[in-house]
Design a protein around this nucleic acid. Structure first.
Lengths: 367, 367
DNA sequence: ATTTAGCACTCGAACATGAACAGTGCTAAA
DNA sequence: TTTAGCACTGTTCATGTTCGAGTGCTAAAT
């Protein structure tokens, strides 16, 4: 994929990398003269200018206006993250924080995701995102019913490794045996079934089995279907939205407004990201990076999303991501997300605290 | 409470109200000439100017700069909401939306709060807030244990009307009987106890009762304590943060930044608001309004918080609020929050759909 | 064939200027 | 007690000016 880009001369690569590094550092367009300060670049400003003009021609750079320096284009960033970006080694401090997170050994998926998201936001100082993706065939493995009081039952549903509960209220007292009976019926008829597979005939069959308490069936089934569809719909949360304001690219009100509006379009985001996160294959093994208006969320003009899937026994159960300006500190963010998600995946699988070393390139997967 | 403010002449009240109404309408300082267009005010601009000067003297108005009109001060708004603001009658449409919410008959407190918050944000076009307040003496009423698989138990805790679950993992297989045994021990020893009341001797006592499976006790108790302290710590959520940007007062980056930072200081907010929401007495019966830097959250310079407690069987279990510029449409917001919270409270208590009429003044409680 | 120095050019940022305007406070008359 | 009139003040907006950074191009140098 980056083979075809190898047609960039080494000198062009050097200059492009220097420009992007500098731009990430200070956020301003970088000019030819500035680059001559870079020890690695032993050419005059005029030479650099010529190279820059060519790089612009090729689409890697752009010029805000005639008499300004150059800034990287989205294509430029793409090339940068694919083949130019340095490896970042997490500091001892950062490693320690990550370790503390997984040693905490939470087992509730939601809690884990939330904590991981918080930590990601804190460590990177960008906005963090936690996704519980949509899933295709959500079914309840098992039902339990618990009597809260005479009139109230609690329906407990085991979905994969997680538990969902719902209250069921009756107008007349429900004896304990009826609750057990209902649980039995549910487990016989409604377990391992998707919302679509719970049909009217099935419901009527269950009602018949419940005798005089048949009136309980319909509301319970309604609750079940709501829960299933609510759960397989996925969920997305954000943390550290205010951190956006640390970066000058969001000082533009319109852009900011768009971003905040985006954050509230949770259904859309869940849908789009679930498709990315749910992919089987090498894609979901690695950190994924979406720069600017590259495919998915069109609105993210000047923003980049870096995220990686979290798995439990091989299937994706979540994703943690970072959202920030295209001009973000890619090397740190990539390293952070990669280590974080790997750590969480490990813990989910077997509770083993992971190694926490920077062992392989999180994007290309090599060495 | 507003008796002592009655020393304002009727004319001053008229003018003050007109100024605030106008300012709420268009957001700009209002001048003397503009007010002469108001049919109710049959004085010349000069007279109005004199009155305005006096009102400023008294602290109800302020002047951004010498040659501008007047804007209401926080004191002015306070007086306005206490004694000047009109009653707002919800439109048929609004009433219908509220009705739909409660007819939905959710029974999960969290879901109800979340839906109510969403609706509040949508109907008012301000940022909405949902609070589950801190509580003093949270205890688990009952424990249940469910076997997920050989190595995993699910601990189910009944706290008041709500259910909390936690996973418990064991290194070696746990037979079903052991789970039941553990549940029995928990119900005997750890029910109705706050986190502080579960002491080391008690823990050791439980361990002794569990025989060779004593290793389960410690992690379970840890989970329980975490859950209790997590739960009684309360929770706060927001919806529609981007709506802030509809209002020019948040076009100032610094202010906006402060607001967003405030939204992320959830612990502090929960603490402060819980104290307000949890008060027994008339305070929590009514819509509460905090204007600008009035007590609590100091940072809310140009913002107002309007909120009201939601109760179940007389005790506060939540609160719904609206956050917006001090220049907010008080009459609509107050009416909305009042009707919404009353409706939800009703449903929580007995499932009765409430009347949905504007029957009494939500702030002063009279007539 | 490359690289570099030099120079004219362009454009935006920052600042100053001045007119138009809205709204005030004050005074004197009604 | 109210009102008309007027001088005064501060904001906003359009316009103009300067300054400097950075460019592209050309011609000389390597």
């Amino acid at each position: 994929m980056n083979e075809e880009k190898k047609d960039l001369s080494e000198r062009k690569k050097l200059i492009l990398k220097a420009i992007i590094d500098a731009h990430i550092e200070n956020g301003e367009p970088v000019g030819s003269k500035f680059l001559t300060q870079n020890k690695q670049i032993a050419y005059s400003s005029a030479t650099i200018r010529n190279e820059m003009a060519e790089l612009e021609e090729m689409g890697f750079l752009e010029q805000p206006h005639t008499s300004a320096g150059r800034i990287p284009s989205e294509l430029g960033y793409r090339f940068y993250v694919d083949s130019l970006v340095d490896r970042y080694n997490l500091t001892q401090n950062e490693l320690a924080e990550l370790k503390r997170l997984v040693l905490n050994k939470q087992t509730e998926l939601d809690t884990i995701l939330q904590n991981a998201m918080r930590l990601a936001a804190k460590l990177t100082n960008y906005t963090a995102m936690a996704l519980r993706p949509r899933m295709l065939r959500i079914t309840v493995d098992r039902y339990e019913l618990m009597r809260l009081d005479e009139y109230t039952l609690v329906l407990i549903m085991v979905i994969g490794q997680t538990i969902q509960t719902r209250h069921v209220r009756s107008q007349i007292p429900v004896p304990a045996e009826v609750g057990m009976q209902l649980a039995k019926v549910l487990n016989e008829c409604a377990a391992e079934k998707t919302a679509e597979e719970i049909t009217m005939p099935l419901l009527m069959h269950m009602e018949r089995q419940m005798g005089e308490y048949e009136f309980l069936v319909s509301p319970v089934i309604k609750s079940i279907c709501e829960t299933i569809t609510g759960y397989d719909g996925g969920e997305i949360r954000f943390e550290g939205i205010n951190r956006l304001l640390s970066y000058p690219e969001y000082y533009d009100m319109d852009r900011l407004k768009e971003m905040l509006a985006l954050f509230e379009r949770k259904e859309d985001l869940v849908k789009i990201l679930s498709e990315e996160a749910g992919q089987i294959g090498p894609g979901s093994e690695q950190v994924q990076i979406f720069i600017g208006r590259e495919n998915l969320v069109k609105i993210m003009d000047n923003s980049t999303l870096v995220f990686k899937t979290i798995k439990r026994q091989g299937t994706p159960v979540g994703a943690i991501g970072i959202i920030g300006p295209t001009r973000m500190d890619y090397k740190r963010v990539i390293a952070m997300i990669d280590t974080l998600t790997s750590g969480v995946t490990n813990v989910l699988d077997d509770g083993t605290p992971p190694a926490f070393t920077n062992d392989q390139d999180p994007v290309t997967g090599k060495e």
